[in-house]
């Protein structure tokens, strides 16, 4: 199940997951559960980003647009049509996937930095359009004001809970889903094709792999998951606006967490989120705005150091250390 993982790593992963599973029984303070939910959520988002970008080696800085669009779809279907966000979420994810195919079929012939810059441009176009459109063919988008999910009270149907714990478990379920999907990807033909395309696009093409087709499949899956994440975000905060949910900050967060953790691996992005989000949280809560921007200085430094010294992400040296420990244990 874990590919090349050593027994020690497997053990740690299972222990880690069990810890996450019982977490709400150990810590009961809603603020802590809230923070844990956000960490798990960002891990999910980074892993969704990783699904295409990590395996294909293309850097998208426009992924937030998928989360934003799907979030809007979910909220609008709920407020306008009275459809449960659980269903809206799927529709949102699907629409994000369709959108990603439209964008991807145009941009995937661009490589490296060119691809990155176009993803930024697409996301910015969408964000500016949403911010300045109050009403689109009768759909009340409400521009930059954002949409509010009306309070219904504790209801599974409406995806609203008074308690934080259900949100936490939903996020954890999503995370588990993306982990399983990534493992399946690694084992599937699609995964091999993506790696082939990443290594040598022309070579892959010569072997009869259609790079655009497989890139698009991966992208649409990634966009689908990112969209689900966006819908979750909208339900969790019961508020969505273009600036936050489609802005470049969110895209940069997703990318940086995956890259620092280790893109193109199952657990790397999750590791990245579990390291970086707490840094942001701790600097913010302990310094309370006295050292403005400190956590971003730390982010930037960690990013630069990772690119320079661990281009495959910090999961690589971590695994090496673990391997040494288990090697020693065997002796």
């Amino acid at each position: 199940m874990f590919g090349t993982a050593t027994p020690l790593e497997r053990g740690l992963i299972i222990i880690g997951f069990l810890c996450l599973l019982v977490l709400p029984f150990v810590i009961t303070n809603p603020y802590h559960i809230h923070t844990a939910t956000m960490i798990v959520y960002f891990a999910f988002m980074a892993a969704s980003w990783n699904f295409v970008c990590g395996y294909l080696g293309q850097l998208s800085l426009g992924h937030s647009v998928f989360s934003g669009v799907a979030g809007y779809v979910t909220v609008l279907m709920f407020t306008q049509l009275g459809i449960s966000p659980w269903i809206g979420m799927l529709f949102g994810g699907l629409l994000a996937a369709v959108l990603s195919v439209a964008i991807g079929s145009l941009t995937f012939r661009l490589k490296g930095p060119y691809f990155t810059l176009t993803t930024i441009a697409f996301a910015e176009i969408m964000r500016i359009w949403f911010e300045n459109t109050d009403n689109f063919i009768g759909i009340p988008l409400k521009g930059s004001e954002g949409l509010v999910v009306p309070l219904v009270g504790d209801s599974w149907w409406a995806f609203q809970f008074n308690d934080k714990t259900p949100y936490y478990y939903i996020a954890l379920g999503l995370l588990l889903m993306i982990v399983l999907a990534t493992i399946m990807l690694e084992k599937s033909k699609l995964g091999y094709y993506l790696k082939a395309i990443r290594g040598d696009q022309d070579g892959a093409e010569a072997l009869g792999i259609n790079p655009t087709k497989y890139s698009l499949i991966a992208l649409s899956i990634s966009a689908f998951f990112t969209g689900i994440g966006g819908a979750f975000f909208a339900q969790f905060f019961r508020y969505i606006n273009p600036e936050r949910n489609m802005g470049i900050d969110m895209s940069i967060d997703m990318a940086i967490m995956a890259i620092i953790g280790g893109q193109g691996t199952v657990l790397g992005p999750i590791l990245g989120a579990f390291i970086l989000h707490p840094i942001a949280e701790i600097t913010r809560t302990t310094l309370g705005g006295s050292f403005l921007g400190l956590h971003l200085v730390i982010y930037g430094t960690v990013l630069a150091l990772t690119v320079l010294y661990f281009p495959q992400g910090i999961i690589v040296p971590l695994r090496r250390i673990l391997a040494r420990i288990s090697g020693r244990a065997k002796k």
Partner: peptide
């Protein structure tokens, strides 16, 4: 690109 993105974050926030 990533490396300079890191520099961008550090410079802006410094």
């Amino acid at each position: 690109l990533l490396l300079t993105a890191g520099i961008f974050l550090v410079l802006d926030n410094l």
